[in-house]
């Protein structure tokens, strides 16, 4: 599946913020925005939904903690109970520190793996850059042209106040930008 996109390049974070907001509010479809650093407010300008990764963190943290409490109880009170200084078999308060550590370990590591998974990042993946300077100092807004509402004249007028550095049309094999 190939599609036509309009690639617009900016060199200022205020410009990309304003341009993205203007394009989205005019009803055009934004394929993606590329930036060398996290620009505050750009996610809202793009209309992105908040990430669901906190749920991964919460649920996996809970799973880790639950598994660990069960494991500590099973080893200490059931599988081979050992009398340590006359403490009760099920020394629940003493299980808290390790449970906490394992919860943090599960939550943290699984969140990062989930992030790699949903962002499709893996070792050795070839980065397809929208512009060679996108990881240095360039901001790129890619507008979907295959959209029926696309109107080049209107887009040009909308982008006028935002100091566009370069515009080019591109034919993409529908890999990037989806989702």
């Amino acid at each position: 599946m190939s599609r036509r996109t309009l690639v617009t390049v900016f060199d200022h974070e205020d410009d990309i913020l304003g341009a993205t907001r203007a394009i989205r509010e005019a009803g055009f479809r934004i394929a993606d925005v590329y930036a060398p650093y996290a620009v505050h407010g750009l996610d809202k300008a793009m209309g992105l939904q908040p990430s669901k990764l906190p749920w991964v963190c919460f649920v996996l943290g809970l799973v880790g903690a639950a598994l660990k409490v069960w494991f500590e109880f099973w080893t200490t009170a059931q599988d081979w109970p050992i009398n340590v200084g006359g403490k009760p078999w099920n020394s629940l308060p003493a299980f808290v520190p390790v449970t906490f550590e394992v919860m943090v370990l599960f939550a943290g590591v699984s969140t990062v793996f989930a992030f790699f998974l949903v962002s499709r990042l893996w070792p050795g993946k070839r980065a397809v850059l929208a512009d060679p300077h996108v990881t240095d100092d360039r901001f790129i807004l890619i507008i979907d042209q295959s959209d029926a509402a696309f109107d080049p004249v209107k887009v040009e007028r909308l982008l006028e106040p935002y100091h566009v550095v370069r515009v080019e049309e591109r034919e993409e094999s529908g890999e990037g930008g989806a989702g």
């Binding site: 996290a38 996610d43 949903v118 990042l121 397809v128 850059l129």
Partner: peptide
Amino acid sequence: EILSLGWDGSYRTWQRYETVYKLL
């Protein structure tokens, strides 16, 4: 290339990155 995991500066990734950073 191997270590940077194919990072391309997409803002969808940046948004998730910020979330993950905050969680960590």
